[in-house]
Design a protein around this nucleic acid. Structure first.
Ligand SMILES: [Zn+2]
Ligand SMILES: [Zn+2]
Ligand SMILES: [Zn+2]
Ligand SMILES: [Zn+2]
Lengths: 175, 175
DNA sequence: TGGCTGATTGTTACAATATACCATAAGTGG
DNA sequence: CCACTTATGGTATATTGTAACAATCAGCCA
């Protein structure tokens, strides 16, 4: 897997949101914003952002890349011994609150890049070469899909919408 | 998990395709059609529908429900002893040819209900109560998504589009 | 304060899913 | 037949995820 991110090309933005963050952006702001948002969300829902949950979220926000559960486990275990169930519980909690997303295609987790909206299932572009992920704005359940589901009497609860392919950088480097 | 399918309600059809097949339909036709289609596809691409691949496909088409890999493994092992790698190879092959789909949300496999179109990533409604699945017609990559991807220089290769929720029957039985 | 209660985490053990790797067999074209 | 490619067999192991129960913690009230 390569290790890079795309450059900050204006064409790669939509509504001012850089879907593929540039490698030189002030990432500590992303992380701080995510943590503050998490604290706000938990407080407003009467839930507790415990040490484990906060540290898990911090670790996920070390970068904009998806992280595997057992990689997280190893990293968190440096500070505190941690068994899989504890970590998975924290991950489930964070996902429930819409603070992170679980990528089913790659069995990994990533921080939510659009936390302003209510808890949602995101939709993602995932590069199979370099593992970079862009969370697309908007809701993954289109009106057409919703209409079809409704006509079938099917009540959609959550969505998994992931598009795998190659990002611009990878295509340029080795078409 | 409950075990039922929806009744053949005309409202639950679109363009004549019963997305949730009725329990009393002539399913042997579904299976035969799928197998014949598989033979055709393989022949036209110069690929071999070997015994293992055919039996795997047959087993998947025993019903319209998704099947787990290790359940398949157990069923196929009744006839022939089978190790995981062999089965997964067959599954990968069948998925490549667009004959089956892999449901990432539930880690299971299901026969493609729209094999007429070229090999595609499907989009699915998956009931979390009874496990029933409807493969929606149409392509999962909407023009809007394609436009966004293109503007980012991202080339989409395949999609995972799955909607989890409750089907009509389950909602009626226990709202 | 001290105890009650529900939420959270710890711990052990295991289940379920998936692949690496190498050997063997089967089809394919000379 | 051989040489070559493709497909399968088989062992072992990696990876991902959960069940079940014990221990602990945080908040609340007597
Ligand atoms: Zn950042
Ligand atoms: Zn999000
Ligand atoms: Zn059928
Ligand atoms: Zn299909």
């Amino acid at each position: 897997m390569r290790d890079h991110t795309t450059t900050a090309d204006p064409d790669q933005q939509q509504a001012g949101i850089p879907l593929f963050p540039s490698p030189d952006h002030a990432h500590h702001r992303c992380r701080n914003a995510a943590l503050q948002h998490a604290a706000r969300v938990c407080k407003s829902h009467g839930l507790r952002l415990t040490r484990l949950r906060r540290q898990t979220l911090e670790m996920i926000w070390k970068s904009h890349r998806p992280v595997k559960a057992y990689a997280l486990l190893a990293q968190l275990s440096v500070q505190r011994k941690l068994a899989p169930p504890s970590l998975y519980r924290a991950l489930h909690f964070l996902e429930q609150q819409g603070l992170i997303h679980r990528l089913r295609s790659t069995r990994s987790f990533i921080g939510c890049s659009h936390p302003a909206t209510t808890p949602h299932s995101g939709q993602f572009l995932i590069c199979i070469r370099c593992d970079t992920v862009a969370e697309l704005p908007g809701l993954p359940i289109t009106p057409g899909t919703q209409r079809t589901a409704t006509s079938l009497g099917f009540a959609i609860d959550r969505a998994t919408v992931e598009f795998l392919g190659q990002c611009q950088t990878c295509r340029t480097l080795a078409p």
